[in-house]
């Protein structure tokens, strides 16, 4: 019993040691053929700026729909639309901020 409790506690602590993006996004996207980097570039192609893009992603995660998806119709038809996000506002903001910082173009071009 004690052993089981310890194992659950350790798993929980390990899970929360990861950031909001890794915790909530990476795991599911790993199974998809399109990488998060590619998806980021698709969003960039549509929204251009940081503010627009973050707002666009958040809106899609809250109200996922084929009509507003950045991905192609073929991709959506094959892999479907994700489920509506149940993350808190703060958790969602943190995840999107990390996503932007990780893949943004600013400061990377030489």
């Amino acid at each position: 019993m004690v052993r089981s409790l310890l194992l659950v506690s350790l798993l929980t602590c390990g899970l929360y040691a990861q950031d909001a993006f890794t915790r909530n996004c990476v795991a599911c996207h790993q199974t998809l053929p399109a990488t998060l980097q590619e998806m980021f570039k698709r969003y960039l192609l549509i929204y251009s700026s940081e503010t627009n893009m973050k707002a666009g992603i958040k809106h899609y995660l809250r109200y996922p729909s084929k009509d507003i998806s950045a991905m192609s119709d073929l991709f959506v038809d094959t892999y479907g639309i994700k489920k509506k996000s149940i993350l808190s506002e703060k958790e969602l903001d943190d995840a999107v901020d990390i996503y932007w910082d990780k893949y943004k173009v600013f400061g990377k071009l030489k």
Binding site: Q37, K41, Y47, S48, S49, E50, T51, N52, Y103, V105, F106, K108, L109, K110
Partner: peptide
């Protein structure tokens, strides 16, 4: 991108790119 990050250059002109909020990208 981001396998290639070298911004395209041309001897005939100088260039810059800006996002929709007029923020300089490069």
């Amino acid at each position: 991108f981001d396998e290639r990050v070298k911004y395209p250059r041309d001897p005939r002109f100088k260039s810059a790119i800006y996002d929709v909020e007029y923020k300089e990208i490069f």
